[in-house]
Design a protein around this nucleic acid. Sequence first.
DNA 1: AACGAAACCTGCGCGC
DNA 2: TGCGCGCAGGTTTCGT
Length: 269
Amino acid sequence: MPELPEVETVRRTLLLKLKDETIKDIDIRYPNIIKTDLKSFTSVLINQTIHDIDRMGKYLIFILDQHVIVMHLRMEGKFYIKSHEPYDKHEHIIFKFKSGMELRYHDVRKFGTMHVLSKDHYLDEYPLSELGLEPKDLNPKDFYQRIHRSERPIKASLLDQHIISGLGNIYVDETLFLAKVHPTRLSKNITKKEAESLVSAATSVLAKAVRLGGTTIRSYTSSLGVHGRFQNELNVHTKKGEPCPICGTPIIKIKVAGRGSYVCPSCQT
DNA sequence: AACGAAACCTGCGCGC
DNA sequence: TGCGCGCAGGTTTCGT
């Protein structure tokens, strides 16, 4: 599911529902999602109240009394709010609140992660300690410095969350299109000016997608979080064979950095 | 040190 | 219909 705009949409929706809810119990049906000590996960969280929900890059952060839960939805993680219904086979972690409400973490591919960390240190601990800045906060000169010796394709650098956070496959393709940069270009051959356009294109693509509630393409669900409208604004991603909105050349699909990549072979050089 | 490929999982759509 | 393959909005680990 999620890149930054989708996670932000989930964050906003969850905060409205979960603020001031107190955890009564947690049902762990697939423990591998939880990356901190299992026993303390439950015991530490019971009786804590959700005061706020933050987001950094693609991470969701539940702010509790003395601890935080740092969550990553990876490819297909979703949340549902239910109560007193039978569990779906893909509902792996169930937070039960004193109000009777339940928050259920649903993840077909089981790739998602949850870390419980102390409120005082979580920014300095894995995984958030390794996270790069979001495009809106990133100085283009710093971005250029970071990539200007790298032999990897620029697409790989833009997907690298240590360098720049929040972009995934969809928004990288859209960013590269707006900046008129071909995804296979080596990072070291990107000029300072192009580095600036990339950061600024990424910033505006993400901001617009957040405004529209993110992008819903393959796995549509009408439930919590995932009903974006940005798919109507996509220029190249998923548009194989369709005319480029700028020049009319058919969009092609190629493989870059191991990912399916949509490109206008005429505009992007 | 840095890169691409494989691994982590499951489900879906496609061609034979 | 059934089977095998490739693919999927992500990241870490492995091997070179």
